[in-house]
Amino acid sequence: MNGTESAIAAAVRAAGESSATAVTVAVLADGREEVRCFGRTGRGPAATACTPDTVFELGSLSKTFTALLLAAMAARGELALAEPVNGLLPADWPAPAVRSAEPIRLLHLATHTSGLPRLPPGLLATALPAWNSNPYAAFDERRLRAALARTTVRTRPGRRYRYSNYGVGLLGRALAERAALPYGDLLADRVLTPLGLRSTTCAPGPGPHATGHRHGRPLPPWHIPALPAAGAVRAGGADLLHYLRAHLDPRPTGLAAALRDVQRPRLRLPGTAPGSAPGDELCLVWNHRRSNGRDLYFHSGGTRGFTAFAGFSPRDAVAVAALANTGPALNGRFVQAGYEVLRAAGR
């Protein structure tokens, strides 16, 4: 068994040990695409075989779509990465208080350097009753406005890395406000449709969806009404591989400038950043690592019932997506196995 086959097998084993019933591993290497599907969409007689179009929740992998949306709008001249976020929020909304002369800019939100906390103030109180299933569901627009009024940024924006669902969620809200479209509609118009992504969406749809599981228990679909840009995107393995392929060869897509821009390193990450190692860099949301002379770009995501990994290597024209319908394990083995598939593919 070669390195890629061994890594794929390890990913499937890791997902199975965490109670997944459906696993998809999609690989582009040596000019060939393969979407491997294992298991069924859930437990019980209504479950169907997992296919390349079976949709999984992507969790924080959604943030890479938001970064591409930001870059696409910047390329169209609709906004600038250096634009302060305050000017893009609704006029009657409060803005985070910043204790420095430097405002929070869109670039800060896309690089986790805004100084905003990981979660909005007040979210935990609404999340606790549904902590193991749908913790964001009760955090609506009214509560987001209240959170903004309670937010104070004490460090200078742009100075320090601090991973923030709140920040990227707020970025999506700002982009939607500038375009006067809901985030899901805007993403479809500017990114999903131009890339030809057929199964990718921000809401549960009528197509074949896997059922999420946590510790073997089936969960309802994930809802994140106030912060969809941080974690609401869903996709099948075939679509996700198509999305990654566009990053390898941006020219045919109409989003060439934006796809190049999201790959430009912006800052060096501390070794304590999620999934990072000393020397890693952050682009627009994407993590960047030099490994054996290769540039690897990657990100992971999870909801309560799903785990996702995606990565690509432009020099070798390699892309990998790994999806499982079980929540992230503490040992991170499924995500690490997805990363090992990326490392092994194309060697």
Rank of each mutant, 00 (worst) to 15 (best):
A80W: 07
P94H: 07
L89E: 04
L116E: 04
R105I: 09
R99Y: 10
P96T: 10
R76D: 15
V85F: 10
A82P: 01
H108E: 11
L88E: 06
E102I: 12
V98S: 03
L123D: 03
A110R: 05
L89H: 08
A82R: 13
G122K: 03
E78N: 03
A80V: 01
T111F: 00
L119F: 14
V85I: 13
L81W: 15
G115T: 10
A82G: 15
R76W: 06
L79I: 13
A97R: 15
G115Y: 08
T113E: 08
V98E: 00
T111H: 01
R99F: 10
D92N: 05
R76H: 12
L81E: 13
G87M: 02
T113D: 05
A91L: 15
G122C: 06
E78K: 10
R118Q: 12
L107S: 14
L119Y: 15
A97W: 04
S100N: 12
V85A: 14
P121I: 04
R118V: 10
L123H: 07
P103G: 02
E78W: 09
T113P: 02
A101S: 15
V98F: 09
D92G: 01
L88M: 11
A95W: 02
S100A: 14
L119N: 10
G77H: 06
A75Q: 14
S114Q: 00
H108Q: 10
R118N: 10
L116D: 01
P94Y: 05
A91M: 08
A91K: 13
R105L: 06
R105K: 13
P94M: 04
A80G: 13
V98W: 02
R99P: 00
E83F: 01
L123T: 09
P84K: 00
L109H: 03
P121R: 07
S114Y: 07
T113Y: 00
P103I: 01
H108N: 15
P90H: 01
